[in-house]
Amino acid sequence: MEGSSTMKVSPRKEAYHVIHKLPPGDTPYVRAKHVQLVQKDPEAAIVLFWKAINAGDRVDSALKDMAVVMKQQDRAEEAIEAIKSFRDRCSKQAQESLDNVLIDLYKKCGRLEEQIELLKQKLRMIYQGEAFNGRPTKTARSHGRKFQVTVRQETSRILGNLGWAYMQQTNYEAAEAVYRKAQMIDPDANKACNLGLCLIKQARYAEARSVLEDVLQGKLCGSDDPKSRNRAEELLHEIEPWQSATVSSVPSGLSLEDAFMEGLDKLMNQLTTPYRSRRLPIFEEISPLRDQLAC
Rank of each mutant, 00 (worst) to 15 (best):
A55R: 09
S97F: 01
K13L: 13
A45H: 00
S228M: 06
L98E: 03
M261P: 10
A140G: 07
K219T: 00
H237G: 13
L119G: 07
D186R: 06
Q292P: 00
Q183W: 00
T272R: 08
L236Q: 08
N54L: 07
V47E: 13
H17K: 09
D265N: 15
D104P: 01
D99G: 01
L216A: 10
E233S: 14
G253Q: 08
E207C: 06
D57M: 08
Q243G: 14
K33H: 11
A140Q: 07
Q128L: 15
S5C: 13
R111L: 12
E78P: 06
R58P: 01
H17A: 10
G129R: 15
Q153A: 11
A76K: 08
A76L: 05
A203V: 08
Q153K: 11
K64D: 00
E77V: 12
I282D: 00
G25P: 02
D186V: 05
K51E: 15
S223V: 15
E117W: 04
L63S: 03
R31C: 07
D74P: 07
Q217P: 02
S10K: 09
L118Q: 02
S156Q: 05
G25A: 04
S142M: 07
I80H: 05
W50A: 05
K181Y: 10
Y172D: 13
R209Y: 08
A245F: 08
W50L: 06
E240D: 06
C221M: 09
R290M: 09
T155W: 02
S228F: 14
A62Y: 01
G263S: 15
G163P: 08
M66A: 10
R231L: 15
A175V: 11
E81G: 03
